[in-house]
Amino acid sequence: MKTSVTLFFAILFFSGCGDDPKKNSPQKSELAKIENWARPGVQGQMSGAYFVYRNPLSIADTLISVYSPQAMMTQIHESYTTEDDLAGMREKAEIIVQANQNITLEQGGLHVMLMNLKTDLQEPDSVTISLIFNQAGKVDLTLPVISNKK
C-alpha cells in the first residue's frame, strides 16, 4: 500500500504541473506583408531595404550588384541561423532569378545592406536603389522609409 502511495506522489510531482514548453521555443516568423520599403537609419550607420522583383524575361537572370547613392557601401546580405544557433548575416555575391519568377528580399532573409549612410533616413524619405542584372541591366527602385514596420 505504502509503495502505491509513494508512486502516486511521484507521478503527481513529476507530471502535469509544468508550462507548455513549446510556448517559449522560437517559432515561425510572423513575417509582415511583403512590400517595398527601407528602414530608417542614422547618418554613418546601417539600414536595410526590402523589395520584390519579378524577372520579366523569358530566361533566367542574375542580380550581380546593388548600388544606392544614399549609402557609402551597398550590398546584398542574407540573415541565417548558424550551426550553433546564432543569428548571423553573410554577403550574397549574386542571386539567380528564374524566368518570370520573383525574388523576395524580406525581414529575416535576403536584404539590401545600406552601410555608412550619407544622411539620416526617416519617414517620409525614400531610398533609391539600383539593381544590376546580367541580362536586364540596371533596374532602379524607389523605396519609402517606414519606421515600426508591421
Partner: peptide, 24 residues
C-alpha cells in the same frame, strides 16, 4: 546571450566595419 564577430569589411572610406553572430 552569446555574440561573436562574424566578419569584417572595409568600407569605401577605408574604415573597417564588423558584423556579429549573436543570440536572438
Amino acid at each position: 546571450v552569446r555574440s561573436q564577430v562574424s566578419f569584417t569589411q572595409v568600407r569605401e572610406d577605408d574604415k573597417e566595419v564588423y558584423f556579429m553572430n549573436h543570440s536572438d
